[in-house]
Design a protein around this nucleic acid. Sequence first.
DNA 1: CAAAACACTGACCGTCCGGTCGGTCAGTTA
DNA 2: TAACTGACCGACCGGACGGTCAGTGTTTTG
Lengths: 218, 218
Amino acid sequence: MRATQAENSSLRQSAGERAILEAAAWLFSEIGFDGVSMRSVAEAAGVSKANIYHHFESKEALYLAILHASAAELSALVENLEESSGRFDANISEFSSAHLQHLMDNETTSRLMLREAFSGDEERSRMLVERVVGGTFERMVSIFRAGQEAGELRSDLDPALCATLLMGADVFFFQARGALKHIPQAGFVRRPGRFSEQMIDVMLNGMLSKKQRKGGAQ
Amino acid sequence: MRATQAENSSLRQSAGERAILEAAAWLFSEIGFDGVSMRSVAEAAGVSKANIYHHFESKEALYLAILHASAAELSALVENLEESSGRFDANISEFSSAHLQHLMDNETTSRLMLREAFSGDEERSRMLVERVVGGTFERMVSIFRAGQEAGELRSDLDPALCATLLMGADVFFFQARGALKHIPQAGFVRRPGRFSEQMIDVMLNGMLSKKQRKGGAQ
DNA sequence: CAAAACACTGACCGTCCGGTCGGTCAGTTA
DNA sequence: TAACTGACCGACCGGACGGTCAGTGTTTTG
């Protein structure tokens, strides 16, 4: 009588459950955990409130189910970004632009994860980092470290710091673009590709060791 | 009988009102608008709930009062950062490290403003940007533009994009440091000064025109 | 020194919240 | 056909929410 299994994401789920998950994911990412009521989820999903409790034990459980699904989705998408065989700077460049593209293409998921990582409590952010972001970050760092050993990356820089700068720039652009578009001079917000291009140019130009620099114009 | 004036921040305010503002600022920055109840504010401030409504028309008005106070505080602090007369790169460097320092020193205010700017609705983020961040950002951009005209900044870069990168790196570090400290390799989170230093090094190294570069080690 | 103005409170209101309960109904299984 | 199961619903619960109000002291002021 009570919902027991749940979160068996791959197992068949009823149309109602799918509708609930979809509606809730959107609402949570848009308004946040506190701001979303189970009534609003039910209404948006076109089901009764009681039906949600048939599928999920609590509001918390529903949120967690969505979080786990999002995390799995995210890390699956990131899986494809490594194992590039090109030059160091080309790898970095490719990763970074794909990373931003991914953020933009999966707005709901990304927003949810960022909300959780930045404003959640200690335990949740730790779990999130260890389960999802951590792997990506470590791969990124090892790419940087390899580049450093090959003499392409400046030896005086912290590889983890470099990775943070690169991924952070994407993340900041993603979450700040709504606010930035109210600033007249910041016309670049409407062209993420152009931002990504110039950002990577600046970063690589600043990070690569002297002999490796292609050096932007001028 | 009804609260009317309010938000006359400089005029004398009762001990109760001050306690309310202080408690509410902390709670809002920590838990967010939805998560904070007027009862919790009253309890934290050591006053009755009704007393809050004596000083502020509504929860919304209380939030706005804190937001305005924070905004004023922020822009006052930023006011001192401009008008430097040194070299272009020294100005940028000084501004950026002071900016991060300011974020860290005013955690409550900063968190509140970021929350508002990033996850608030259209209208609020616009108001915030126009009233507070906009000015700082424009000053930053004009510094960059001047540097560009003087031939110190690469001419192929968008000045506003450069400003975004620099300020964004600080902001990202500020809000991500809680999550980053769960990543073993990211030991730099515990030394903001070191982060700031290397970040500015990379940025300037990537942004300055060739002849201007001092070039980090190696 | 009275009166107006202000700071403040406890009790209360209607509403919405997360969650529960008894029950219906369509679809399997035996 | 009878027993059972899972999807689903309307009505309801206690409690917390934002907000109100009549009233009590305290301070300022004409």
